[in-house]
Amino acid sequence: MSKDHTTADVAFIQALAELLNSNDLTEISVKREYGENDALNVKVSKQTQMVAAPAAAPQAAPVAPQASAPVTAAPALISADPAEHPGAVASPMVGTAYLSPEPGAAPFVAIGQAVTAGQTVLIIEAMKTMNQIPAPASGTIKRILVADGTPVEYGAPLMIIE
Rank of each mutant, 00 (worst) to 15 (best):
A8T: 09
A15D: 08
Q119I: 06
G87M: 12
E27I: 03
S45R: 09
P92C: 09
A147L: 07
V152M: 12
I144P: 00
N37Y: 13
F108G: 05
S29F: 08
E36A: 14
P70S: 15
N21P: 02
Q49P: 11
T26E: 08
M1L: 10
T96F: 00
A61P: 07
P107C: 11
P151E: 12
P92D: 10
H85V: 08
S2A: 12
V115G: 03
D4K: 15
I161S: 00
S91H: 02
Q14L: 13
A97P: 06
N131E: 04
S91Y: 05
P62I: 06
F108C: 06
K128V: 15
D38F: 13
P157S: 15
Y34Q: 11
G112M: 07
A88G: 02
A90T: 01
G87F: 07
A126I: 12
A90Q: 04
H85Y: 00
I144H: 00
Q132L: 04
P107G: 10
L40Q: 01
L25W: 00
T48C: 07
G139F: 04
A57S: 07
I28K: 00
I160R: 05
P62Q: 13
I144T: 00
P54R: 02
R143V: 11
Y34M: 10
I13E: 11
A74L: 07
Q47N: 13
E33H: 08
H85E: 02
G139H: 06
A53K: 14
E125Y: 03
D38T: 11
P70L: 14
L77G: 00
P54D: 07
V44Y: 01
T26C: 08
L145S: 06
I123M: 13
P75H: 00
S91K: 01
D9Y: 04
A73M: 12
I141C: 09
M159L: 13
I160W: 11
A90E: 02
E125C: 11
V44R: 02
M159V: 07
E153Y: 02
E102F: 01
K31W: 11
A117G: 09
L40E: 04
H5Y: 06
G35E: 14
P92L: 07
E125R: 13
I124D: 06
A106Y: 03
M50C: 06
A11Q: 12
E153N: 09
G35V: 09
P107M: 14
